[in-house]
Design a protein around this nucleic acid. Structure first.
Lengths: 234, 234
DNA sequence: ATTTTGTTTGAACGATCGACCAAAAACTAT
DNA sequence: ATAGTTTTTGGTCGATCGTTCAAACAAAAT
């Protein structure tokens, strides 16, 4: 009842002919439950028993399909990370073709990131919403933690590409300032996606957490203008 | 060897005369250890045994002085929250007296927040550094979690005062946009303080996480300029 | 010196954690 | 149908969790 994906989870014996067993949705259901619970309470705050109960399966199946808790956590990220990163990259490639003023092109680049993330959170299904929240949750953890490494694998080079695109658009800026500017943008994005409730509190209930589209429409011009404060021409 | 506070921790029998027992540094040492460990791995990621071992005391003393793990977590925040919030408020009051262009006054307001936080993290002693990290860690958690409430108690009205100051400076802006702008600023601040390591990764090691002063000097003009993107005059 | 009170010790409680396994069940291939 | 493989079941393992307690200890008050 969670996801519409039908992919096999375990991936143990990939014979070249055809997939032998039916490989039911069990793995996907465990992933969905883990994705949801991890996104709210983090790696330590959730037990495998909770995940199994949420998925409606036996506890031992989590070990059978994924081996360990850490492997399960990695599998949750691995399930969508490549597709997600590719979508962002594609949006960036598209944004680079935008013509117009420097401001317009800068906004297009920033929008490529936030709009793609918001799009998945709002229109990718309930699993994606949890995934995006988990993504932000993990990003808000110190790098010393070990379970965050699968996340970095997929997204670090995406970040670099965005910095590269902005740096090429603004040769008059020091490269370090470009990095700072995009870092601020990314930091705000990351924080907001885990804490949409803060919006309601600040505005006295005028905003709903589902107004992520409206938020993106504010973020883009705000952060695009922010670069003017770091010496961007235009 | 961590803090200079000498307050009693338990607060069990407050006779009106004088504090009877010596109330040694045990409570403070537990708070220091908890502050450090919680700031890195969060509430669920740390056990009371780890905290006791780090503090060099018996496990049972954590229960004797603070009752429960949740109470200990609250006590960690309570120890510095009031002072911290007051420092930020004082900096804001000071910033409101700054004269000059709208841009200058806007920057002064933003600087009041980030500079005060950075000042405590860099020059408040090792305990403060951990506290600031913990603060950001907690702020990056969904509001549904219960152990975050003591944090909100102290900082929510501070946020409102900043929005109020910015709204008064920019009557031409929609109140909602002012809230958005400051929210972006606050979101970036919160994220950055837990993830200073990201700086090193993005710049290839050119920056050190201790360069928080330099970061604040970039943040202020960047976010001050960001308001121009939301319709701020000047 | 003795009582009183606050603090610390050492050990345990039941509960839950992640991990694991042998047997049963479900399924496919022959 | 039979054999072989994958998946599920139900339960247990040692470890660790937060919490608790009686007894020993230390410092003040009487």
């Amino acid at each position: 009842m969670e996801t519409n994906l039908s992919e096999v989870a375990g991936g143990r014996s990939k014979r070249p002919k055809a997939d032998r067993r039916r490989a039911p949705e069990t793995g996907a259901r465990i992933l969905d439950a883990a994705e949801m619970l991890f996104s709210w309470r983090g790696f330590y705050g959730v037990s495998l028993r909770e995940i199994a109960a949420e998925a409606g399966v036996q506890l031992a199946l989590t070990h059978y399909h994924f081996g360990s808790k850490e492997s399960l956590f990695s599998a949750v990220i691995e399930r969508r990370a490549a597709d997600h990163a590719a979508r962002i990259e594609a949006a960036l490639v598209d944004a680079k073709t935008v013509e117009g003023s420097r401001r317009d092109r800068r906004e297009a680049i920033l929008r490529a990131l936030i709009a793609t993330i918001v799009d998945r959170a709002l229109r990718g299904g309930p699993g994606w919403k949890n995934y995006v929240r988990l993504l932000a949750f993990v990003a808000n953890h110190p790098q010393e933690e070990d379970y965050v490494s699968p996340f970095r694998t997929h997204y670090d080079h995406v970040i670099q590409d965005f910095v590269e695109a902005l740096a090429r658009l603004h040769p008059e800026m020091a490269r370090l300032d470009v990095q700072w500017g995009f870092f601020f943008f990314q930091a705000a994005t990351t924080h907001i996606l885990v804490e949409s409730g803060m919006l309601d509190r600040q505005s006295g209930g005028a905003l709903h957490s589902s107004d992520l589209d409206a938020m993106a429409d504010r973020m883009v011009p705000f952060f695009a203008a922010g670069f003017l404060g770091l010496g961007a021409a235009d």
